[in-house]
Write a protein that binds this DNA or RNA. Structure first.
Lengths: 204, 204
DNA sequence: ACTAATCTGTACCAATCGGTAAATAAATCG
DNA sequence: CGATTTATTTACCGATTGGTACAGATTAGT
């Protein structure tokens, strides 16, 4: 039986929880940015020392990529949830309201990690640039696919272009994140969402 | 007479042009971000050595502020120009088209320096945070004032809120900048602008 | 008990960071 | 001509950067 206390592998067991440590790293990267976060900052927040970090996560860059994964899987679930809404209008509404909730939640830093990192590594020469472009493109594709389904279901006017509409939604989303970093309140951002919704060629 | 070759002040004259040096610094900050730009990067691009930089510009932070001034005065003139358009619709159109032209111009880095820096220093504890918030707020105020004038001139529907509309315009503008950093083409961004224009409660 | 495997802690590395001291060079003023 | 003022050059500073060598500690397998 494998129901022993053993964790299956030889050697001294980890003295820290990898998930919790990664969460702390994510919060720090999110608040201070990749370049603004030092290894010392990280190890202090994660409660481990440097060799443990390197053994468990590789290096600063791979740790950041794992933080991006966690961000996608645990903080931007509102995108996937929104895609399951029955109408295009409600999809858009939920995506936009989702990002407002995300960036104005007092437990979170007041910006979107992907947008922030994309502007930090806007130079195509930066090693993380392509990675971030691809993550953003994946979101865009998922939303576009959903709008194409909407179009085929008669849920969008015939002249509406699903690809354009997906780009518009993501543009507003990024903009909301910048506005939040600039100190805009949740009420103000929700008002912006209402204005943006009027732009969408959707039936209601 | 003061028409001599003398430049009026004693001492050895500068061997470099301050304006040109500042322009190089701006381009570098814009492309690599504040934290991604080192003093060595700066002095190399500016063609001067370190003590000259400190004598002429103070330190890295004050140099950055001067670069921000130059950015405002020489790269975002489209905002002031747009405010002089006769109708609210054309004001909005020109602002949005202006930022698209700015961030997709092959001579420029593909993002907005203020949005980029605002996300870099989104933490209110960062020394440059407040500065950036204020610069952004100044733009918002100018646009809001213009829309209030439009409202009083009957150029906006009575239910349109000038403050909300100004925030919406700046939200889209920031979003366009992030999209550009993500690799969106000028055509795609102009399409987004057309979609955004439909959101605006404006008479046409 | 012994060996192999893995993690922890200390202590360190070369490189780079932002910033400056001090000597020299080039201009103006008297 | 000095004397004064400002800029340039070289060489350097302490601090911090991301990353690692190595010895000791803790586990599992035999």
């Amino acid at each position: 039986m494998e129901t022993k206390k053993s964790h299956g592998v030889q050697g001294r067991p980890r003295a820290f929880n990898v998930d919790i440590a990664l969460e702390q790293a994510l919060l720090l990267f999110w608040r201070k940015g990749y370049l603004g976060t030092s290894l010392t900052d990280l190890t202090e927040a994660m409660g481990i020392n440097r060799p443990s970090l390197y053994a468990a996560f590789g290096n600063k860059e791979t740790l950041f990529r794992k933080a991006l994964d966690r961000y996608r899987d645990q903080r931007t679930t509102y995108v996937r949830d929104a895609l399951e809404e029955p109408t295009a209008r409600r999809v858009i509404e939920r995506i936009m309201q989702g990002v407002v909730e995300l960036v104005t939640n007092p437990n979170n830093p007041s910006s979107c990690l992907v947008a922030q990192s994309l502007l930090t590594f806007a130079d195509p020469d930066d090693p993380l640039h392509q990675e971030l472009v691809e993550r953003r493109a994946a979101d865009e594709l998922a939303i576009r696919d959903r709008f194409e389904r909407a179009a085929s279901e008669g849920d969008l006017p015939p002249d509406a272009d699903p690809a354009d509409l997906a780009r518009f939604v993501l543009t507003v989303n990024s903009g909301l994140s910048v506005q939040a970093a600039g100190g805009a309140s949740r009420t103000e951002l929700l008002q912006v969402v209402q204005t943006a919704l009027q732009a969408c060629p959707i039936l209601d």
